[in-house]
Design a protein around this nucleic acid. Sequence first.
DNA 1: AAGTGTTCTATAGCATGTTATATAACGTTG
DNA 2: CAACGTTATATAACATGCTATAGAACACTT
Lengths: 167, 167
Amino acid sequence: MIPDVVRDLGHLTLGSRLKRLGERLQAHTQQILDACGLEIQAAQFTYLAAIDRMGPSTIGELAEAVGASQPGATRTLAQLADAGLVDIRTASEDQRRRTVVLAKRGRELVEAGKRDVWPVIEAAVRDLCAPAKGPLLAQLTALEDGLVAVPLRDRAAAVKPARKAAR
Amino acid sequence: MIPDVVRDLGHLTLGSRLKRLGERLQAHTQQILDACGLEIQAAQFTYLAAIDRMGPSTIGELAEAVGASQPGATRTLAQLADAGLVDIRTASEDQRRRTVVLAKRGRELVEAGKRDVWPVIEAAVRDLCAPAKGPLLAQLTALEDGLVAVPLRDRAAAVKPARKAAR
DNA sequence: AAGTGTTCTATAGCATGTTATATAACGTTG
DNA sequence: CAACGTTATATAACATGCTATAGAACACTT
């Protein structure tokens, strides 16, 4: 039986463990997004949500809002612009700044997400977290095990049984 | 004031948030490793620890032990071999398998880590986690804020004041 | 108004994670 | 024992994160 070294080492490898769990959870979330027909990466959605919440913003502001580096924001927002989801235009007052706004397709995607998908994901993750109690490491174990036992997508289906499973 | 969207969205963006926090924590851990003169990436250390714990193992076994994909393990272990920290040799019985063992420098690094650095990192992370209580999201907030308030390296210094700060 | 420092974004290059697939060795089976 | 399926590793291509730095625009200061 092969051990889970990152889990077994406890606080020593907490960084690796959080990163790994975050990646797994994002991958599960991606499955739900795909199943709902939202053609976007889970990580990109945080940027759309930030623009939706903050209104038109500069690249630097969005980087700070999602907690990423400025070059990371520049690249991801350029991808979203290529996909036609946002418009990036040079600000009129200060030509260094670039203002990012939701394009028509981006607005539609955010509206559809808010209405149909985000509540489902939130409920599924909440369901995953529900049995986790006590110290952080114990809660992480509960999440890891819970994700293997019942994938997030199945939890989403349970929350919203009317939705067709695959498309 | 720019909001923290990933934090504010709660369970919806838990995956992104865990990943982000894991990366930040790893970056702080890296500072401690660097300060102690251990010339290795934090992520690579999980592989060395796995070999140390499991003894000579195949690439596939190590991938499973650290919870990574097989190609990820292949690449990282190749880097460690390039750095002279492990030896990778084809198994005698089954020529498909490659057995990874700690090289002399790898053993020294693990011994030095176990003796001088790992206990410090563990104590520092434990100190960071100590005030975190209650639901998962609240604990994550505590960790994020705690990391900003007092970097991990300062917590390590408090634990082991005899160690010189920089080198 | 020219020069200098600051700010904002873009680019380059690296690290590390993934999936899909190629390749080689093993094992089984007709 | 040849053929075929399985297993183990390697490679390719992509996704995202980072730091360091370049380049352009702005804002002072003299």
